[in-house]
Amino acid sequence: MTDFAEDSVLVLVDVMPSGGLAKSAAGLLGAAASIGTPVALVVTEPGKSAGAAEQAAALGAARVLIADSADASVLTVPAVDALAAAAELVRPDAVLLSNSIEGRDAAGRFAARTRSGLAVDVVGVSRDDEGVVAHHSVYGGAYNVDSAVTFGAPVITVRQGAIDARAEAVAEPSVEQLSVTASGRQAATIESIDEAVVTSSRPELRGAGKVVSGGRGLGSKEQFELVERLADALGAAVGASRAAVDAGYVPQAHQVGQTGVSVSPQLYVALGISGAIQHRAGMQTAKAIVAINKDADAPIFDVADFGVVGDVFTVVPQLIAAIESKQK
C-alpha cells in the first residue's frame, strides 16, 4: 500500500501503558487535519493496538498504521524505528508528535536520525506556499514566533492542550500493519512501570479549561484546601506557585510557571500569588485572569482582568457561596 495522499501528515499518537490513546491525540489529529490528511501511527506492544486504532479513527485519522510488535521493555527506540518506517512509506508533508516526555524523546531521536528540521513546543500549525509553518509562543507567551524548515518534512512537537481544532471522525478507516525493521540502536531498558492512578476527580492541570492556583499567601498545607474547594466549585484543576510548592503545600506536579506546567485556560484564578515573572510566564496566555491578594502592589494585578485586594480567607468562601447559589 503506497497510495497515501500527497498532503499526508504523519501523527505519532501517544499510547498509555494501559493501551488507550493519550488525551493529546485529539489535538494532534485536529492539527494534522488542518494542514492535510492525517495518518496516525500507533506503536504498542503485541495485542494492545486494537482499541487505540479505533480511537485514532474516531479522532480523525483516515489511515491508521499499526506497529504492535514493539518490545515494551525498550525505551523510545522502538517508537522511533516505527516512525522511520512509517515516514519512509507515507512520505508525509510533516510529522507531528505530542510535546510530551515520550513524544519529545521520539521526535528528537527521529529528527537526529533523519537529519530533519525539528520544531518543538508548537502551539499551532498552518501551511503557506512553501510548506508547513509551525507557530510558537515564546518566553511565556510574550512573543509569537513562526518557524519553517529549510527542506523536507518538518518534525513538530505540539504543546498539549494548545490546539482547539478537532478533526471529524472517520467511520471506516483503513487500518494497516506496518512492517518495522529494528535499527538496533542502543536503548535504555524499562524495568517496571507504575501507571499513575487518577486519585482525584478534578481535571488534569495540563490542558485544563479552568485553573485555580494558590500561592504562599495560603499560609499552610491545611489552608491550601481553600484552593481545592474553589477549584471544585468551578470544576477547575488545581495549580500552585513555586513558592507554595517549595513550602510543601502541594506536590510539584501542580507547579504553574516557567519551570512547571504552562497553562492557557479559559479562566485562571490566582489566590495569594504575588505573580513573579516566573509564574506569569506559565499562565499569562489565559483568556481571563482573576487575582485575589492582600498586597495591592502585587504584580499579578498587572495582568489580571479582575483583581481583588483583600484577604483570600474572607473573599474566597463568599465567592464559593455565590457560585453555588448561581449554580442552583
Binding site: 495591592a296 495582568v303 483583581g307 485586594v309 474572607t314
Partner: peptide, 18 residues
C-alpha cells in the same frame, strides 16, 4: 496584557467576583 478592574474588598468582593 492590560490590567482590568481592581477592587478593594469592602465585604462584597466575593459576590462581585462571582
Amino acid at each position: 496584557r492590560e490590567a482590568g478592574v481592581k477592587i478593594v474588598d469592602e465585604g462584597d468582593a466575593g459576590e462581585q467576583l462571582a
